[in-house]
């Protein structure tokens, strides 16, 4: 499923989050002017609403590596979650051709009391692999983690770095056309970071499209060929990374 078919088309995407059980009416005016977070407002039902994304347009094809830049709460993660299919748009449309892998949270579906191998299996199932596919990949994933005999031990006996290694190995074991990342993943010690880096690059190579949200401008320059700046849920047009300096000057 690689090649020219892989594409992301987002048109006029608007996302509003109802916040339940919080009465922000009195805070509304003061909050509406801050730069952090989306705009607050009230829906008809009385629940406070945050407009997290307003009229976002993106068009990506195979080979595009989009970097998302913006303050905390500018809507980067919301956009990634919408692209992963978890959030439904309130208006507008998202259309994605190709298999999606979201590396938003490495710890998704990880059970600390289960063994390393069981965690690989479970996480693989959640990522959409069949039981057979996982058994085929199990050895490769296990080898990559470098955990050896520890794979048969419960995850809670691992150090934080070892846990991260395992989570990283499973999360990146998928074949995907569209890769969604919230911050570049850097885990483990220096040696592991090197091989993890290599693996991510090859994953990126195979994936048709990368969408990476990051605060690290240099990182974006390094890996992305397109950028989009987000501010309070409003996105700039997608442009070449060469225009990044102009964009930042405007922002």
């Amino acid at each position: 499923m690689k090649g020219p078919q892989v594409s992301i088309t987002v048109s006029d995407l608007t996302m509003r989050f109802p916040v339940y059980g919080v009465d922000a009416k009195s805070l509304k005016k003061s909050l509406a002017t801050v730069t952090v977070g989306g705009r607050l407002g009230s829906s008809l039902t009385g629940a406070t609403e945050v407009t997290a994304l307003a009229g976002v347009n993106i068009k990506l094809k195979a080979g595009d590596r989009l970097g998302l830049i913006g303050h905390n709460g500018s809507g980067k993660t919301t956009l990634l979650r919408a692209l992963s299919g978890a959030y439904e748009p309130d208006a507008g449309q998202i259309e994605i051709h190709g298999q999606i892998a979201s590396l938003l949270d490495l710890n998704l579906g990880i059970d600390p009391s289960a063994t390393g191998l069981d965690n690989i299996r479970l996480r693989g199932r959640i990522a959409g692999l069949t039981a057979r596919e996982i058994e085929d990949k199990l050895e490769e994933i296990g080898e990559f983690t470098g955990l050896g005999p520890f794979l048969a031990m419960p995850l809670k006996t691992y150090s934080a770095g070892m846990q991260a290694r395992l989570a990283f190995a499973v999360a990146t074991a998928v074949d995907a056309d569209v890769l969604l990342m919230d911050e570049w993943i850097a885990v483990g010690d220096a040696q592991f970071q090197k091989i993890a880096h290599k693996r991510l690059l090859s994953l990126m190579e195979r994936a048709g499209i990368l969408v990476l949200a990051s605060h690290d401008i240099d990182l974006i320059r390094l890996y992305c060929n397109k950028v989009m700046v987000m501010k309070g849920g409003v996105a700039s047009p997608v442009t070449s990374v060469k225009n990044l300096d102009d964009l930042l000057a405007d922002a």
Partner: peptide
């Protein structure tokens, strides 16, 4: 993550 090759999400219709 999902396996479907085509995903379409829209606002309320």
């Amino acid at each position: 993550m999902q396996t479907s090759e085509h995903m379409l999400r829209t606002g309320r219709h």
